[in-house]
C-alpha cells in the first residue's frame, strides 16, 4: 500500500529577504512499508518528525531525498497528486480548522464535490459516511455546536466520503477530552475492521497504540523502534529513553516484574495483567456481583 524508501526531509530556514539561512532535518533516512488493511501506529514526542512523515504520504510535502510510493504512485509525480490525496485521506489535529461546511452534511460532501462526483452520488456517499461513523442524527447541525469528539468524527466522515484506501490520522485526539478520544479511536478501529481501510494513527497517547498491528516509534526524525505493540512496550527502559511513557498497566507489570514477580514482558491491558497474576477468576466473580 505505502512504500517509503530512504526518505529525507529538510525544512529550510529563511531570513527576512527569503534567502536560505540553514536547514533542519526533520526526517532522516526513514524506511517504512504499510500493507493493505493494516492498522499502524506512529509514536514519538513533540518534534520527532511524525507529522512531517504523515504529510508526505498525502503529498502535502515532497521528499528532499528518497521516494514515497502510495498504491503504486510516486508522490513526487505531479500527475498523481489528486489521485493520491483521494486514496490517502488525512485527518488533522484541530477539528475547528479542518471543517469547511457550515452544516455537517455539507462538510462531508466537500471532498466529493472537489472530485467532481455527480450530485446524486455525493448524497449516497454522504449518507453512507455519516452512517459509518454513527453521526446521522447530527447531519443538519452546525459544526460549531458539536463536541470535540463529534467534530472529529465529522472530519473522518468527510474523508470516508472520498472513498480512500488509507486514512492517516495526525494526532486526531490531542485536543479532545477522554470520552471524545474514545469515540474517535473506536471509529478508527471500526473503519479498519469493518471497512478494511488501512489506518495510520499518529499519536502520543500510548493507550491508543495498543490496538495497532504494528507500532513505529520515531525520534529525531528516525525510526527508533518498531514491532508489535507487545514487543515495543515490553522495552520500558528504551521507551523512557525516547521520552515516551508506556501504558500504565504495562508500567505496573514491569515494576512488579523487577520486584521479583514472575510476569511475562509486554502486558498491555488490565485483563492480561489480572490473568498473569492468577486473578482472572476473582475479577470475573466480582464483575458478576
Amino acid at each position: 500500500m505505502i512504500q517509503i524508501r530512504n526518505l529525507i526531509h529538510d525544512y529550510l530556514r529563511r531570513d527576512e529577504e527569503g534567502n536560505v539561512e540553514g536547514s533542519h532535518r526533520a526526517i532522516d533516512h526513514v524506511n517504512l512499508d504499510v500493507h493493505p488493511g493494516e492498522f499502524i501506529a506512529i509514536l514519538g514526542h513533540n518534534g520527532s518528525g511524525k507529522s512531517t512523515l504523515a504529510k508526505h504520504i498525502n503529498a502535502l510535502l515532497y521528499p528532499t531525498e528518497g521516494t514515497v510510493v502510495v498504491d503504486g504512485m510516486n508522490t513526487a509525480d505531479e500527475q498523481n497528486l489528486w489521485k493520491i490525496r483521494q486514496e490517502a485521506g488525512m485527518v488533522f489535529q484541530n477539528p475547528d480548522n479542518q471543517i469547511i461546511g457550515q452544516v455537517v452534511e455539507e462538510d462531508v460532501g466537500f471532498g466529493p464535490e472537489n472530485m467532481g462526483v455527480p450530485t446524486e452520488e455525493i448524497w449516497e456517499r454522504v449518507n453512507e459516511s455519516l452512517r459509518i461513523v454513527e453521526i446521522e442524527h447530527l447531519r443538519k447541525k452546525s459544526p460549531n455546536r458539536l463536541s470535540g469528539g463529534q467534530k472529529q468524527r465529522v472530519s473522518i466522515a468527510g474523508v470516508i466520503a472520498m472513498h480512500p484506501k488509507c486514512i492517516i490520522l495526525d494526532e486526531p485526539t490531542a485536543m479532545l477530552d477522554p470520552s471524545g478520544r474514545k469515540e474517535v479511536i473506536r471509529a478508527a478501529r471500526a473503519l479498519n475492521k469493518v471497512e478494511d481501510i488501512t489506518i495510520i494513527l499518529i499519536t502520543h497517547y500510548m493507550e491508543e497504540a495498543i490496538y495497532a498491528d504494528r507500532v513505529f516509534v520515531m525520534d529525531e526524525g528516525r525510526i527508533a523502534m518498531q514491532g508489535t505493540p507487545r514487543e515495543v512496550f515490553s522495552d520500558v527502559d528504551r521507551m523512557k529513553e525516547l521520552r515516551l511513557d508506556v501504558p500504565q498497566v504495562t508500567l505496573l507489570a514491569d515494576e512488579l516484574r523487577r520486584k521479583g514477580l514472575d510476569l511475562p514482558a509486554g502486558i498491555l491491558t488490565a485483563d492480561e495483567l489480572a490473568d498473569a497474576l492468577g486473578l482472572k477468576e476473582e475479577t470475573d466473580v466480582r464483575k458478576q456481583a
Binding site: 498525502n58 502535502l60 489528486w82 490525496r85 483521494q86 485521506g89 488525512m90 488533522f92 480548522n97 479542518q98 469547511i100 452534511e105 455539507e106 460532501g109 466537500f110 471532498g111 466529493p112 464535490e113 472537489n114 472530485m115 467532481g116 462526483v117 455527480p118 450530485t119 455525493i122 448524497w123 454522504v126 468527510g158 474523508v159 472520498m162
Partner: peptide, 18 residues
C-alpha cells in the same frame, strides 16, 4: 492544508452537492 488534503483545487471541475 486541510482543504488541499481533501482535493480542493478551485472551482474547476467541481460539482455541487446542493
Amino acid at each position: 492544508m486541510a482543504m488541499e488534503a481533501r482535493c480542493y483545487h478551485g472551482g474547476e471541475g467541481r460539482t455541487r452537492m446542493k
